[in-house]
Design a protein around this nucleic acid. Structure first.
Lengths: 205, 205
DNA sequence: CCAATAAATGAATGACGTTCATTTATCTCA
DNA sequence: TGAGATAAATGAACGTCATTCATTTATTGG
């Protein structure tokens, strides 16, 4: 039969659906409809919805910019990588719980990223044993920050309980006259600097 | 009618169900069954399953140990807090996406924690404007690390693609003779030290 | 003691992911 | 050319969920 479907097409359609309707809109039925096909047809090319999510994840991973590790100083490369990584997954937080548990064996794009990052760390003079834990720590921070980037601006509005939390409320207000000023970007920058400085100190040369 | 149910009872039952069957096992039907009640009865006390999750989240927050902020040096207090926080939510990662978006207005326990942590930062000499971003950065790291703690031991097994990722594969192997040695705890400790050092440098006194 | 109210029931609904027997189109090879 | 073999799409059906709602049941306050 004329192959209307394949994994690449499914992945592309899933990404478009996600960008238009969000992850709630990503159902097998909607995905099939956007491809002009019956839902059950998808299962000839994909074993489950979870596999669709894995395909999307791999596609996104290939868009993370780790190029700096072969051209920039380590600090700059990490910064560029981290910003790119967070930026992409901030709009795909439902995938984070998938990534965190997905063995790299099945994820060539992810593996390629790790290889490049590892090379960058080696070139910067990190002892081999420190590299993986450092990457894991940075990734944890990036994933957490991706969630954070979606927090509503008024998340720290203490509301009716402001009186019982004076120090916290004052600290929130100190960030600006507007109450709703969630410092996600500032926080990301500060924490990333701290991590880069702290981890960077592990280098030997 | 005799009130068989209330929010505290529902929360406790939900927590027990989660610990026994995991988050997949937490369905409104199962929750009702464990309380000896029809599923629809729950909706007299709770507006949705999401509210159940919020109740659970608040309960867990009250178990996070932030006591060190009034008794220990700042570095120690942060460490104790972070370990406790990660330890609890590592077994409740499905809640992380809820927390990250939940305004503190509705979450008195969370607010109480923030107040105590803020006080600790003030006492340690942090400028007021740096405190919230620092907490946000630490929390991001903690949440990401909680996901990480659930990674399978062989997550970094590059498998068939080992040849094309020599540096990464070697770095993974350097962690130990056993291949399956995911350094989640080591990574958490390293990253936390880096953050504590880096953020600690923001103190003025 | 009656009326108001809070709470529990059970049946029904609408998504959703997934399965499966069946049909349809294309490819291979004699 | 024609006959399997095969890959792919279909539509009906299932089971699981969360959620709603009309109804019933028990309790409480005046």
């Amino acid at each position: 039969m004329a192959a209307v479907l394949d994994q690449d097409g499914i992945t592309a359609a899933a990404l478009e659906l996600i960008s238009k309707k969000g992850y709630d809109g990503l159902t097998m039925a909607a995905l099939a409809r956007s491809l002009g096909v019956a839902p059950s047809a998808l299962y000839n090319h994909v074993s489950s919805k979870d596999e669709v999510l894995k395909l999307v994840e791999e596609d996104l991973m290939s868009k993370v910019d780790f190029g700096g590790f072969s051209t920039l100083p380590w600090e700059e490369a990490v910064r560029q990588w981290a910003y790119s990584y967070r930026g992409i997954f901030a709009r795909h937080t439902p995938l984070i719980s998938v990534i965190a548990v997905l063995p790299v064996t099945d994820a060539p794009q992810t593996l390629a990223m790790y290889e490049a990052v590892t090379e960058g760390f080696l070139r910067a003079g990190f002892p081999e044993k420190q590299i993986i834990p450092s990457i894991v720590a940075l990734e944890a921070y990036i994933f957490g920050a991706a969630f954070d980037a979606n927090a509503p601006a008024d998340i720290f509005d203490s509301g009716r309980l402001a009186d019982s939390t004076p120090h916290f409320t004052s600290a929130v207000r100190s960030l600006g006259p507007e109450r709703n000023n969630y410092p996600s970007d500032l926080a990301f920058s500060m924490g990333l600097d701290a991590l880069i400085t702290g981890l960077g100190a592990l280098r030997v040369s």
